[in-house]
């Protein structure tokens, strides 16, 4: 496959990748909300507040990674995803799982 010069990519690959990031952000939001629901019960103490804050922090971190990537996909010939971005996104998922495990235990 040759580099197509200035011709627009007919497969809309950057657009599809942007939408994939949006879908993933949405999934992360759902999981973060479930984590908050798991944390908050009748009484709210130090443990509940910590869980709430950490879940919110992870969600914001994922949002930041995804937003940066979505913006960098706006150029004509986007660069591949950075290792840092991939690791951060995976770390957010793992962090949510670890909080959940700590709360359930």
């Amino acid at each position: 496959m040759t580099a197509a010069g200035d011709v627009r990519d007919p497969g809309l690959q950057p657009e599809r990748t942007r939408l994939a990031w949006r879908r993933t952000t949405l999934s992360c939001t759902v999981v973060a909300v479930l984590a908050v629901k798991l944390t908050v019960s009748d009484e709210i103490g130090a443990k509940e507040l910590t869980g709430l804050a950490l879940s919110a922090l992870v969600w914001v971190a994922f949002l930041a990674v995804s937003h940066r990537r979505i913006r960098s996909l706006g150029t004509a010939r986007p660069l591949p995803l950075s290792h840092r971005g991939a690791l951060l996104a995976a770390m957010c998922t793992i962090a949510l799982a670890v909080f959940g495990a700590a709360l359930i235990w």
Binding site: T24, S27, V30, V31, K37, A97, G100, I104
Partner: peptide, 8 residues
Amino acid sequence: LALVGGGF
């Protein structure tokens, strides 16, 4: 994420 959400 779906697996983690399922766990929750």
